[in-house]
């Protein structure tokens, strides 16, 4: 079984000109946790996830783990202000501000359509790199589909029933 057989081909996406605010709306309206940003040639520029957005809003001393426990803090007022500053930012700029070594920037993984489901399942359970969704790309970096852990299970479940 290959990635191409289990992936969802209907992938919602945004353009680099869309704003962070629009990305938040798209995530909320469609009840999804991530949305890829594609250029005019449908090539992948990056992935916006609810976690990357949350990370951008919180102060660095929390997101970088210096202050892991903030149970004593009152409501974080900065939170709203940061969101306000961020919402009109085009996605291309937002993605650009995130460093390559950023933990959450690597939150997703990509595979080719020929990748085996075994390999995909192994990516999902890698404890060193928590991945929520895997994007399936062709050789030119164009998005073909998206795979969630549920897709892997659905296929396994079907197979166990037919056996």
């Amino acid at each position: 079984m290959l990635a191409a057989n289990i992936m969802t081909t209907k992938v919602l996406s945004l353009t680099p000109e869309n704003t962070v605010g629009e990305a938040i709306e798209a995530l909320a309206e469609n009840k999804i946790r991530q949305i890829p940003v594609l250029d005019a040639d449908k090539k992948l520029l990056g992935l916006i996830t609810s976690r990357t957005l949350m990370q951008a809003i919180l102060p660095a001393y929390i997101t970088k783990g210096y202050l892991k426990d903030v149970r004593f803090a009152p409501e974080l007022t900065q939170f709203v202000e940061n969101l306000e500053n961020l919402k009109d930012k085009p996605l291309i700029e937002f993605l650009g501000t995130r460093g390559k070594d950023d933990f959450f920037a690597k939150e997703y993984d990509t595979v080719g359509p020929e990748t085996s489901t075994m390999e995909i399942a192994a990516i999902f359970v890698n404890i060193e790199k928590p991945v929520d969704r895997i994007l399936v790309l062709d050789d030119e970096n164009r998005v073909l589909g998206i795979i969630s852990p549920v897709d892997v299970f659905r296929r396994l479940w079907k197979q166990s029933k037919t056996d």
């Binding site: 102060p59 001393y61 210096y66 202050l67 007022t77």
Partner: peptide, 14 residues
């Protein structure tokens, strides 16, 4: 300093 500095930033943010 590594324990006090992050709290300091939280306080100065507030």
């Amino acid at each position: 300093v590594l324990l006090i500095a992050p709290i300091t930033l939280l306080i100065t943010d507030e």
